[in-house]
Design a protein around this nucleic acid. Structure first.
Length: 589
RNA sequence: GGGAUCGUAGCUCAGCUGGUUAGAGCGCUGCCCUGUCAAGGCAGAGGUCGCGGGUUCGAGCCCCGUCGGUCCCGCCA
């Protein structure tokens, strides 16, 4: 099959090229047939160029392109000329190519969906034919942005003196944290590798080795349930440094984000970024990754609520719980049905109900107003700065749970009132710091690490480890962008004894700790430098840069929420020979 | 593990309280048309209502199961 190679792409030509002879290669985006004259829009990843077939100019072409339909692959040779009727909607809209010769490079069946941007097609079909979906300009743009971020990342960290080192993909399964994807070992039957949830331990060991500044763009794997912003395999920018403090990590991260947003979006991130302790974030926004593009802050009304006479509140407070409240500004017009829907939303996060008050025309109504004295009612209104037309939503409960419920209501109210739409296209960057080091697992009835068990406690809180572990804070930092956890890291424990103490606290026996993390404990005995780092969720950064809230829009071949790849059909059955080689027998088909 | 929601033509959807031959737009096929770019006109083809079972005189619609998509809670050190 003969075809002439392109001399320009489909996005290249402009009026100054008029008169030039060119060759285009591309896909048929659309065909408009007028009998004597036919227009073909030819598309490649750079753009679309209109090709004109004029039968009075080249009568033989009419027969040649008779069969040409959408998504055929063509080569076209012809002269560039200015259009009679320009199309201002596309960059090449001032010119067209008058075809002298056309060849069909390959035919195409009718595609299962049209290759257009404003596609209503459901994702199931798009993922089944992902290679066609990826022809759509909107997705092509996302992957060009993704590529830009790869390049910026490598350049930035290179210039900062970092060295990229690859860590293993076949690693040891560790019990803490997310479920591992396991890989059976054929040579060592009955034993398994695990795919890394992150290269955490390897990068710490590289610090012990003296590599000082390490980075890697690396695939990580977590066998947990999926979400709109979560895939089982994902990419992170993994960073670790020695002889540094938390300030160095924060400053480095800010320089990186500044550069990425500048180069890709020409957006000026104003640094230094706001920092907020975990506790403040929870109290004011009900989240450890609050979206700060809008206010709508929460209020802790525990003191007033405790004595207001409403037993749900006073009982909660009497048992050591709190009452958080949200003033949903201007939502006083919400119907009973809408308020009930908010209540249902709150219940998803563990609320038992949703007490509310409404201020309308100087009148206060609500689910529990009859239990309140005028004095306590007015006090609550005052604390919440309630004005006419406001809706007040209350969440009694255990502190963190009550905050989370109120925070979920905050987000939902922002969505329903159009506040979220109003901030689309803007960015808010900030740090959350001073995370609790530990949290208590009811399920396992022991302490578990909130971040991971290698995170160092804040110097001021080291003594709390033995006396009051709940209140020990970690030297940890999360970068939050528009309500997404975009990066997270910490200063690590770099001495054997503190790491051992941590494992003790987490309920590991010495033997356990040794069996699972002995190699780390050993390494910390041989002169480990103080170190720390951060890991960026690469896919989430790309999501934010592309302004999509679906992680599948920035991953070329993603899985569905049940972990399937609809295109190639994995995970799939394997034959018994393969299983036999691995020494594996299935208990159930 | 749990909740919500969806599955009808190639695509997007409509289809009332269970009742005749399941509709529309786009796409597709054919013909016409020399300036369109969401081309237009005329004609036409195209359906196992995701799958299996049940209730009923009768099921796209009701019930049970199952498969798949999406969103969320739990989970995600």
């Amino acid at each position: 099959m003969r075809f002439e190679q392109r001399t320009v792409t489909c996005g290249f030509l402009r009026p100054e090229h008029a008169g030039q002879q060119v060759v285009l290669n591309g896909w048929v985006n659309a065909r408009r047939d007028y009998g004597g004259i036919i227009f073909i829009d030819l598309r490649d990843r750079e753009g679309v160029t209109q090709v004109v077939i004029d039968t009075s100019h080249r009568p033989e072409l009419d027969e040649q392109i008779r069969d040409v339909r959408s998504e055929y692959v063509l080569w076209v040779k012809g002269a560039v000329r200015l259009r009679e009727n320009p199309n201002p909607k596309i960059p090449t809209g001032l010119i067209e190519v008058l075809a002298d010769e056309i060849g069909i490079i390959n035919a195409a069946d009718v595609t299962p969906f049209e290759i257009v941007d404003d596609l209503g097609t459901n994702e199931e079909l798009r993922l089944t034919y992902r290679y066609l979906d990826l022809r759509r300009p909107v997705l092509q743009r996302n992957f060009l942005i993704r590529n830009k971020l790869y390049q910026i990342t490598h350049r930035f960290f290179e210039e900062e003196g970092f060295v990229e080192i690859e860590t293993p993909v076949l690693t040891k399964s560790t019990p803490e944290g997310a479920r591992d994807f396991l890989v059976p070992s054929r040579i060592n039957k009955g034993r398994f590798y695990a795919l890394p949830q992150s290269p955490q331990l390897f990068k710490q060991l590289l610090m012990v080795s003296g590599f000082d500044k390490y980075m890697q763009i690396v695939k990580c794997f977590r066998d947990e349930d999926l979400r709109a912003d979560r895939q089982p395999e994902f990419t992170q920018i993994d960073v670790e440094m020695s002889f540094i403090t938390q300030e160095d990590i924060i400053a480095l991260t800010e320089r990186f984000v500044l550069q990425a947003w500048k180069e890709i979006l020409n957006y000026e991130v104003s640094t230094p970024l706001l920092r907020m302790p975990f506790k403040t974030a929870m109290e004011r926004y009900g989240s450890d990754k609050p979206d700060l593009r809008y206010g709508l802050e929460l209020t802790n009304v525990t003191i007033t609520a405790g004595v207001c006479g409403f037993s749900i509140f006073s009982d909660a407070v009497a048992s050591g719980n709190v009452v958080m409240a949200l003033n949903a500004k201007g939502c006083g017009s919400f119907s009973r049905k809408q308020i009930d829907e908010l209540g249902e939303h709150a219940k998803k996060y563990g609320a038992k109900g949703l007490p509310w008050l409404k201020v309308s025309g100087g009148e206060v109504t609500g689910s529990f107003v009859k239990f309140l004295s005028d004095e306590h009612r007015d006090l609550l209104l005052q604390e919440l700065k309630a004005e006419d037309g406001d809706l007040l939503l209350f969440s009694p409960g255990e502190w963190e749970r009550a905050c989370i419920i109120s925070g979920a209501l905050r987000t939902e109210v922002a969505r329903r009132t159009g506040i979220l739409d109003g901030v689309a296209g803007t960015y808010s960057f900030h740090w959350i710091t001073e995370f609790p080091l530990l949290e208590h697992s009811e399920e396992e009835n022991r302490w578990i690490a909130r971040h991971h068990p290698f995170t160092a406690p804040m110097d001021a809180d080291v003594s709390l480890l033995s006396s009051d572990p709940t209140h020990a804070r970690a030297i940890a930092h999360d970068l939050v962008i528009n309500g997404y956890e975009a990066a997270g890291g910490s200063i690590r424990i770099h001495t054997n004894d503190v790491q051992q103490t941590m494992f003790d606290l987490l309920g590991f026996t010495r033997e356990d700790a040794d069996a699972k993390f002995g190699f780390l404990l050993n390494a910390l005995r041989f002169g480990a430098p103080p170190h720390g780092g951060i890991a960026f969720g690469f896919d989430r950064l790309v999501m934010l840069l592309c302004q999509t809230d679906n992680i599948r829009d920035v991953i070329a071949f993603p899985k569905t929420t049940s972990g399937l790849s609809l295109m190639d059909g994995c995970p799939s059955d394997v034959d018994t020979k393969q299983l036999g080689d691995l020494g594996i027998a299935l208990t159930r088909q």
